[in-house]
Simulated scan of single mutants.
Amino acid sequence: MDPATIGLALLSGALIGLVLALVGGGGSIVAVPLLIHVVGVSSPHAAIGTAAVAVALNAAAGLAGHARAANVKWPCAVVFAGAGMVGAALGAELGKAMDGEALLAAFGVLMIVVGGLMLRGRKGGADPDVRLFAASARHLMPRLAGYGLAVGLLAGFFGIGGGFLIVPGLIAATAMPIGIAVGTSLVIVTALGATTATSYALSGYVDWMLVAWLVAGGIAGTVAGRFAGKRLAARKNLLERGFAAVVIAVGVFITARAL
């Protein structure tokens, strides 16, 4: 990798980390466009595979803090992630078999949908004590597995973490509060990202050197984002809406260009 490409990779990683720290999600949805249009990765499949590795590593790093704060419903996460990994494996195979330009067009449409969901905002449920055990399994397991499979298919197909899809899915399935849903989602994002990354890596679609530079930039971006987030806490809604508008605009651009 030449110095210019390394610099662009560091910058892209920093932007992804900054978004994750400021908005609390959405970093993975901008990773693929950054890799293609900023870093210059020519293959959409390679961009998706490389982004999937970075997504899994970022989620695993963020999970530790939520686990220490007891914001993770582990049994619910395991069921959702188990079904999601099956979906992600299937989705990754479908994505690799699809024409690169058609895949980019579909990714652009997904960005528009995700941006719309972000504009609507996220509301949590009202049951902080929800848990998966023998008495509740009959009700919760089919819902968790169903949402997990559907989200996993999309995450594997597009190489995204799927946090903005997983969080609403967890809330709809269990009525858990949003703070707990966000913490629990990181277990699932890690599992789905690792599944997708493994599938693409086995097909030679992961640039490991690029992953290293993205992660290095992501660490710096996360630190900066946490510092800025404390200063901009009162404007979090404005930040989320502004980022949603950017996601929609980029989605329109990618779709139009691919078509």
Rank of each mutant, 00 (worst) to 15 (best):
I6M: 09
L34P: 02
L192P: 01
V38G: 00
L214C: 05
G159R: 07
G95L: 01
M209I: 01
L232E: 14
L153R: 12
P3S: 14
A244D: 03
A181L: 03
L104C: 04
R241V: 04
A155L: 02
Y205E: 15
K230E: 15
V109Y: 09
E240L: 15
R122K: 11
T196N: 11
A155C: 15
V206T: 08
L90Y: 02
W208I: 00
V223Y: 10
A175P: 00
G183N: 11
G204N: 11
L140M: 09
G225D: 07
I219C: 01
A126K: 08
H45A: 05
L149Y: 07
F158E: 04
V109C: 12
V211L: 05
Y200W: 03
A155D: 09
G163W: 03
A228S: 04
W213M: 03
F157N: 02
S43G: 03
L94A: 13
A172L: 12
G95Y: 00
I188L: 01
W213T: 02
G169R: 02
K123V: 10
S203H: 14
A191M: 12
Y205S: 12
R143W: 02
L214S: 09
L90P: 00
G17A: 11
V38R: 01
G179R: 15
M209F: 01
A88S: 14
R131L: 00
R138F: 11
G84Y: 03
G100M: 08
V30T: 11
V53E: 14
R235F: 10
V113R: 08
M176Y: 06
K230D: 14
A83V: 02
L57N: 13
V79H: 10
N58V: 13
K230F: 11
A67Q: 13
R131P: 00
W208E: 01
G148N: 08
A197H: 09
G193C: 04
V41R: 03
I166K: 04
S199F: 01
G115F: 07
V215F: 12
A61N: 13
A64L: 14
I112S: 11
G229F: 12
S43N: 05
A194P: 05
V215Y: 06
A21G: 10
G225I: 03
A102V: 15
P128N: 07
L154D: 06
T222S: 15
V167R: 01
L117Y: 12
V211N: 05
G121Y: 09
V53I: 15
A14T: 08
A106H: 00
L202T: 08
G125I: 00
V206F: 05
G242M: 12
V78K: 01
W208D: 00
